[in-house]
Design a protein around this nucleic acid. Structure first.
Lengths: 347, 347
DNA sequence: TGATCGGATTGGAACGATCAAGGAGCCAGC
DNA sequence: GCTGGCTCCTTGATCGTTCCAATCCGATCA
């Protein structure tokens, strides 16, 4: 049945065996081979064995395109990647993608990466969707609200978001997120236990719900400890430089002994300022970051950082995807996971 | 032709329009619509316009599975990702993947990620290959020779390697690589120009051809400058700790004024040792890393580092893939690109 | 013995696109 | 008026799999 044979030089690629090839070899029908692959229970044990031998001998794997066409599913999960951003320590995404690939492989899915840009939130999604090239999406870039979620919901496209629907509290799509407030509370309480009382916050601008969430954790822990926070908080851009400048101002005006930051990027800025002032992080001034990025891990003075349980996030996302795609009722609309604290020399 | 209609609550997903749907609407045959999409030149202008209107109105996109089945191609490029490795500064891969996705999108390809592990070099490849799930592979993890390359060649699987076939100098598969020796030569000459004469090398163990290549650049530049290198070289594991220890030994025994390292990870170790000894990087001792990882960029004292032209690598890889898949003769078996030097405060 | 039953297996059709031929329709040329 | 060639478009077959309904077969039961 295979169209081209490996004769002579063999420059022409040999087409892989098909279901029919295997069927002929095993002396059964196509459908029986198909069942051997997909519903082994339907076959009599000795028939199953015979078919399986033929499959192994011929090195048969079901043709993906044909199966996709017939079953109307691709076993692919779409993940949009934005153009590489230099300078920020968001290598967190790297860790997430790795674990997502591993986890979804176990569930029989592969991850399809496609390009997008910041200007067009929906770019790329619609095309793959209409072409039925992917079964579902994982939406990650939800830092400032997520227009994708609303659009995808409207299109009836299956997707799971990594990130809460901040701007649409009544959204019905499944999501998985990490409890940022719990993370910064963990960080703050760690510092409190170490004896710090003047703990400063360096976070993002007010229009970032994620930033406000993380800030709330610091604020709550401070209030619960009965400590004042006046003059101890700062809101800046998420860059190393901004973090450094904010730290300098805070040190001059409010004399904090510790910093909790909304990101490792900001924490790097703080460390930079400490370096310039010859202050030893950990001994003189404590610093805690957020994301446990590679930067935090290899930094000459290890940076204590809130670590997102990305492995668990991936597991929950794949779980939600499976429920979604098998049209089962989702066990829960959203899942909120608690981060941990990676303690290093800086605190 | 669409099987399910959006009536009532609309819980049932609407199947997207097919070629036949568009054909009926435009009053032409299926094949004509197909030609409008793939060979517009074959249609008369007004027919083309009519078909295009129908396509736009109905929001038609060719079904990927059907097209893949018929054309025996998936427009997918497979890229294996290994389980996330913590602690090392190899976020370089992140940058590469981003640019690969962007570049291959322009060529009409998507990137399929699949899981693999270090123990089985061929794991994952064979399955996707036999299932014709991808058109080609990009092989990246070629740090210690590349058994994948030999295996894929034997399987007649189209692939392009990021990395030279060190152990098979006569391999015929296309590859793209960065000239590591040129990079370290660049770094060394930069230091020489700054007046340094005792420039140390911290690299990897001898069994890494990449490491030996990078070492050769340093060695060549030193020899060309007529400088001695005795006692100035060290070979260690690629960890922060090893780099730090090697720096300490070299400082004690050979008093170098500058370090060239085979990786940013090792350079981090050097910076750590300088920190402990209260030596200011850049002022007291110069340090140059390799890879221009995020760590180098955000480090409180920016780390000068050899930067691989990953954007160009991606472009060349996609170019080679296109040649390969259209059965054109490859323009060149291999492409070697020259890195640049990102100069920061540490040198 | 013949009818019934249920599990195992089979052949035809369909998924939605492209490939390979095969018409219409038109114009020039003998 | 017929032919040949050209452009533009259509029809039937096909890619390899799974769905569906039908069939086979041996065992059980009246």
């Amino acid at each position: 049945m295979s169209r081209t044979e490996p004769r002579g030089t063999g420059f022409i690629p040999v087409s892989p065996p098909t279901l029919a090839d295997v069927a002929e070899r095993a002396g059964v029908s196509r459908q029986t081979v198909s069942n051997a692959v997909n519903n082994p229970d339907l076959l009599r044990p000795n028939t199953l064995e015979r078919v399986r031998e033929a499959i192994d001998e011929m090195g048969y794997s079901p043709n993906r395109a044909a199966r996709n066409l017939r079953t109307r599913s691709s076993q692919l999960i779409g993940l949009r990647v934005l153009p590489a951003q230099e300078g920020t320590a968001n290598a967190m995404m790297d860790r997430f993608v790795h674990t997502l690939v591993d986890t979804s492989a176990a569930a029989g899915y592969h991850v399809l990466l496609f390009a997008g840009d910041n200007d067009d939130p929906v770019g790329g999604y619609d095309h793959l969707l209409r072409a039925t090239a992917v079964d579902a999406f994982v939406v990650t870039d939800t830092y400032l609200g997520n227009p994708q979620a609303a659009w995808l919901t409207e299109q009836r496209a299956p997707f799971v978001a990594f990130g809460r629907p901040w701007d649409q509290p009544h959204a019905t799509h499944p999501w998985v997120d990490v409890d940022g407030a719990a993370g910064t509370r963990l960080a703050t309480e760690h510092l409190l236990k170490k004896g710090h009382t003047r703990i400063a916050w360096i976070g993002w601008r007010k229009d970032s719900p994620i930033g406000e969430d993380r800030r709330a954790g610091w604020l709550g822990a401070m209030h619960d400890a009965g400590l004042a926070t006046t003059g101890l908080a700062s809101r800046v851009e998420d860059t190393v430089q901004s973090g450094g400048e904010a730290a300098a101002v805070l040190l001059d005006e409010s004399a904090p002994t510790a910093f909790v930051c909304a990101s490792d990027t900001l924490a790097m800025g703080v460390l930079h300022t400490l370096w310039l002032r010859q202050l030893a992080p950990g001994r003189d001034i404590a610093v805690v970051g957020f994301d446990d990025s590679q930067v935090a891990q290899v930094f000459p003075v290890g940076l204590t950082s809130v670590r997102q349980p990305l492995e668990d996030v991936a597991v929950e996302i794949v779980r939600a995807l499976e429920a979604l795609l098998s049209h089962l009722p989702a066990p829960a609309p959203g899942v909120l996971l608690t981060p941990t604290l990676a303690i290093r020399e800086s605190s």
